[in-house]
Every structure is written in C-alpha cells, then in structure tokens.
Design a protein around this nucleic acid. Structure first.
Length: 474
DNA sequence: AAAAAAG
C-alpha cells in the first residue's frame, strides 16, 4: 500500500490528509501524483468515487510552493456550482497548513465575496465557466498567471455545451502551463480534442481494461416502468433496510420538483436540487443531504457528476439517463471509496431503445434485463432485494464483488416528523404503506463484506452484513 | 430535447 508520503507529497499536506484518516493513496492517485508533481500534462481517467480530485489537486497545491505570491496561479474548472463548492472544500483542506488560499467562483451568488477574495490574493480558483468568464471580462479575475489548469469532468467540459466557454478560458491562461484533465469517462474523440489544449499529455487509466466499465461494487437493477406506479415503488424502496442515503434522478427540473413534493407529502426527508431553484436553496439542499439531516435527494443531472456524499447506498433513475456516460456518472454517486451501492433504473416504455443502447455500451450482459411488474404491492416490496433478482440483475461482466443490500423489509416506518404541509398531506403514508415484509433483515449499515462471485447473483443466501469496510484502495 | 452555465 502506497501512502501519500511515499509519493513525495509535502509533509503539511500529508498531515492535513492524515488528520482525516486519509493515509493510503488510491490507484489513480498513485499513478498521477508522481507525474503531476513534476508538471507532466495528464488525462486522468478512473472510475467514479476512486479519488480523482486529490489526484490532480495535490500536485496543484504542491507546485505552487508553500508560500506563493498573491494572485491567481491555478484554475480548476468544473461543470456545476455544487461541484465547485465541493472541490473548493477539498482544495481548502489540502492547503490548510500553508499560506495558499482558495476561492470558489460560480454563478447564482453575490459577486462581492468572490471579488474580495480575489483581491485578497487567492492563488487557487475553483469555478464554473460562466462566472469565470464574466469576472475575467471585467478584469476582476486575472488568469494570465494561471500556470496550473485543471478541467474536472473534462469530457463534459469539452462537450458541445461547454466547449466555447472552455476555449475562451484557455485563451486567457498562459500558453506554457501545466494542464490536467480528469474524468471517469473519456470518449476517444474527446481525448483527441483535448490534445489541442495540452502538450504531450499522458493518458492514465487507473482501470483494468477487462474489468468492465462499471464499478464492481455497484449493483445494477433495471425495471420496466410500463404500467408501474413509480412514485409508489420508489416510496417502498426508500423503506428498505440498510438504506442510508438515496439520490433519485429525473430527466427534467419539473419532474424533480414534482417528485420531491410527493415524497415530502408521504413523509420522507427529501430535498431537491435542480436548475430552477435559487442557488441558496440548492446549497441548502446539498448541505442538509450531506449532513444527513435529509436522506433523500431528488436531482436532475446537475448532480450526476462528481458530487461526493458518504453513505449513499441507493441511486434511483426515476427516468433513464440519456446515454451510458450519464448512466455511469449517476450510478457513481453510490459505491464510492470502496463502499458498495445499488443503482436502480426505471425504463419507461418510450425509453426502451435508450436502455438498449446503454446496456450495450456498458456491456451489462443480459440483453434485455427487464421484467414487467404487476401492480401487486407484494412485488413492489421485493423490489429492493438484490439477491431476489426479481427484475433481473444486470451485472458488469467481471463484477465479482456483487454487493448486496441486506434486508428485504419494506415495513420500516419512517421515523421522521412528517411536516404536514397543507392539509392534504399524508403524513403517515410511508408508514401506512407497510408492505408485507418478505424476510428478515438484520441490517446494520455500511454495505461491506461478503463478496459474491457471479454474474447473476445467487438468489437465496441471505447474508448479514458485517465484515470490514472494503479496503478503500482495493 | 433537457440540463448545465452569467444576469
């Protein structure tokens, strides 16, 4: 096991990390840090939740020196505001024992604080394209000395929607610079395009080529949603034992809002994040979810990438994502840092072709792992039992550590104060739903242990969880 | 087509 100290990381950074129990480097970090430190341009690719942020962040901090002059020397560009906040926090942590300061520059927020921090001499900027260009245009942000440049979620940043902004930004930074691009997904044509902004980049893939594209510790379940009351089924899944936090993705902002209202009415501690909300509300939702004050987050694809929340045990695709990349990123909100997780996808009738495409791209194996459900509540209750393979399980080809969520139960009432908003609210609906409880549970949390050699997952075989948290860097 | 990203 390689430690950060072994990789040549400065002592003060090692201390900031170790204070949080972070000692050993993940594979992507092990591979990119020794290259990034001397200034090698890198395209870094590693699966979701395997530590890419430190992979580029540590070299950025260290290369600025322990006592950098005031003024922007490093720029990290990300696709969403929430990710800007998160990466800002990571960078802030890495620099806590040195004079370097970090600022987050993104929209939906007052200019003043951001401008102040820039004027105070912040050296590292983490931001989203719009506000960065805005401030740069006003000469309030000087990028002419930003010799460290990172595109996080790089394939997204180089995608059509963002590319013009990214080109503008690259025009503002020095031609001679250190450039790092990171993402879990890096289509070949994006890699080709990326080379335009880099010099002799090395493409690092911290992935075993025949390991499959999906994370081995995420289990994938797919259900045909045709004639299914999705809200009802989701409500039941949310009562599964062993569930900690859940992220539910919808295709549209409106659908997200509708679902969060519905789930709140049913008594769940749910919050939403989508682009129709004020930035303040978005951040409030994220903070409550991260802190565990709320355990259900309903989101559009704004939260599909990068967002790192501990203890997300379930991801639910209320509507199927558009493509396999989005599928991978959404599912990757669970199963982070070696933990296990479950990704459940509902496929609407009109989206069957999308599923077929995703299924093929991700090499899930079973061609059409979809089964129709009747409206029997009992079947709904079984839905969250992975080993039941009720709805066929699509597993990555070599995924041999099929995780399981324990407990089949569907009857655990929410112990939430149901805030009756509006007289029509049904505060007890969740508890009332009390599905017949198919089996014992015995669930503690933290999906750990019990590896499971497979392809289809054995029905039967109810195991209790326990066992050590899978070694993070495994 | 939707979502994101400036206001």
């Amino acid at each position: 096991m390689t430690t950060f100290a072994d990789l040549g990381v400065d002592q003060d950074i090692v201390e900031a990390l170790s204070q949080r129990g972070i000692i050993d480097a993940f594979p992507i970090q092990e591979q990119t840090i020794p290259l990034g430190l001397p200034g090698q341009d890198i395209i870094g690719q590693a699966k979701t939740g395997t530590g890419k942020t430190f992979g580029f962040g540590i070299p950025v901090v260290q290369r600025l020196g322990a006592n950098p002059e005031p003024g922007v020397k490093a720029l990290i560009v990300v696709p969403t505001r929430e990710l800007a906040v998160q990466v800002y926090e990571d960078m802030d942590m890495l620099t806590e024992n040195r004079a370097t300061s970090v600022v987050a520059i993104y929209g939906g927020k007052a200019y003043e604080g951001q401008i102040e921090q820039l004027k105070a001499g912040a050296q590292i900027v983490v931001g989203t394209p719009g506000r960065l260009i805005d401030l740069a245009g006003q000469r309030l942000l000087d990028l002419s000395n930003a010799t460290e440049v990172v595109l996080d979620e790089a394939d997204k940043m180089l995608d059509l929607g963002f590319l013009p902004d990214i080109e503008k930004i690259f025009q503002k930074v020095p031609a001679v610079r250190h450039t790092q691009l990171f993402s879990a997904t890096m289509p070949g044509q994006i890699v080709t395009l990326a080379r335009r902004f880099m010099s002799n980049p090395i493409h690092i893939r911290a992935t075993d080529p025949d390991e499959g594209l999906t994370q081995a510790n995420i289990k994938h379940l797919v259900y045909r949603a045709h004639s299914l009351d999705k809200d009802e089924v989701i409500a039941r899944i949310l009562q599964a034992e062993g569930r900690e936090k859940t992220v539910i993705f919808t295709r549209t902002k409106r659908a997200a809002q509708k679902l969060v209202d519905e789930l709140q009415d049913r008594g769940f501690a749910a919050v939403a994040v989508h682009g129709d909300m004020s930035q303040e509300s978005r951040e409030r939702s994220m903070a409550a979810f991260k802190a565990g004050k709320k355990d259900v987050l309903i989101a559009t694809d704004v939260a599909a990438r990068g967002i790192d929340v501990d203890d997300v045990t379930h991801v639910i695709n209320h509507t199927i994502p558009d493509d396999e990349k989005t599928y991978l990123h959404r599912a990757g909100r669970t199963g982070r840092a070696g933990r296990t997780g479950i990704a459940i996808t509902f496929v609407d009738w009109e989206d069957l072709h999308k599923w077929a495409l995703i299924n093929r791209a991700l090499e899930f194996g079973q061609p059409e792992p979809i089964e129709t459900y009747s409206s029997s509540p009992h079947l709904y209750a079984d839905l969250q039992i992975p080993e039941g393979t009720k709805g066929r399980i699509a597993t990555a080809p070599r995924a041999d550590s099929a995780p399981k969520v324990d407990g089949a139960g569907g009857d655990r009432p929410r112990r939430r104060r149901s805030r009756s908003r509006g007289s029509a609210s049904r505060p007890d609906a969740a508890a009332g739903a009390a599905a017949p409880r198919p089996a014992e549970g015995g669930g503690t949390h933290d999906g750990g242990g019990s590896e499971h050699r497979d392809g289809t997952s054995t029905p039967r075989r109810r195991r209790r969880r326990r066992g050590p948290r899978p070694d993070a860097a495994a």
